[in-house]
Write a protein that binds this DNA or RNA. Sequence first.
DNA 1: TATTGTTATACTCTATAACTATA
DNA 2: TATAGTTATAGAGTATAACAATA
Lengths: 155, 155
Amino acid sequence: MPSLSPVDGLAQLSFLVLGTLERRAAEHDVSIVQTRLLGVLRDRRPTMQELAKLLGLDKSSVSGLVDRAERRGLVARVPSAADRRSVLVSLTDAGRRLAATVGAQFEADVTALLEFLPAADRARLSGLVSGMLVAHAAAHGVDLFDTLPPTGRPD
Amino acid sequence: MPSLSPVDGLAQLSFLVLGTLERRAAEHDVSIVQTRLLGVLRDRRPTMQELAKLLGLDKSSVSGLVDRAERRGLVARVPSAADRRSVLVSLTDAGRRLAATVGAQFEADVTALLEFLPAADRARLSGLVSGMLVAHAAAHGVDLFDTLPPTGRPD
DNA sequence: TATTGTTATACTCTATAACTATA
DNA sequence: TATAGTTATAGAGTATAACAATA
């Protein structure tokens, strides 16, 4: 019974997990990026600029992204009352429904993957992953609990 | 000290790992897809069709992908002796060097990430991930040890 | 006829640079 | 002047459909 090197294991796992998300999103005719957009909007109503920062994209990329999502009725642009140059982006009801649906299916997929391990190992794996991410985030001065695409923030 | 749900943990980890790969690849002006292409060619010389299967893309997408990589001198098209309709795709020396460089940097990044855990936990995490992936692959009738982008096959 | 690969076309996603409107 | 956002443009990546060459 062969096994994967630590690095290959994490690489494989990452391709598998994000591939699953992509496939689920595609079933609803959205890309992984659109899904991330909906995800970050689940508990925020950012300006275009804030959105660019959250997604790590140029503001012009976000313009196009929001254009396409808006055309599909998933998000809406709302003029900012505070600054007339600014636009706030918010989820529509349809966008919120779609985010919830894709999020739930993805969650089921990952849960099914985890169930290839016995429950005790599952808990162990979870704890180790969580511990590693928290340590990594802390080392980089990142607040891990403020930006969690695509499933949103664990409240 | 908060912790992540199992599903959020795996999702976060996947974004982090693939984001790292993307950043490293970008330093050498290649995309994550081009990097995957180089990765699967490290120990294969497939036809366009086989390549499409390996990458999970349409043959027309692979035509464009190989065009761009060939234009940059990273891969070469070689006529098949066995079937004059077919083309074999192979890595050039420059492509092999680039694959090795990006692969090594990515490996170092993931290793550094793993080092946020004590050595014993690291080994535990590795074993759990490997076990989960092997079980998942077996359940889907996939030979996990024949398709391992982006770092290639662990010989 | 069936298969291999390319091409034409269309759309998403991304960035840079130039622009408009507001601060 | 500086900032918020859009638009013009260019290129990568993807798929579908139509095509040429070979089997």
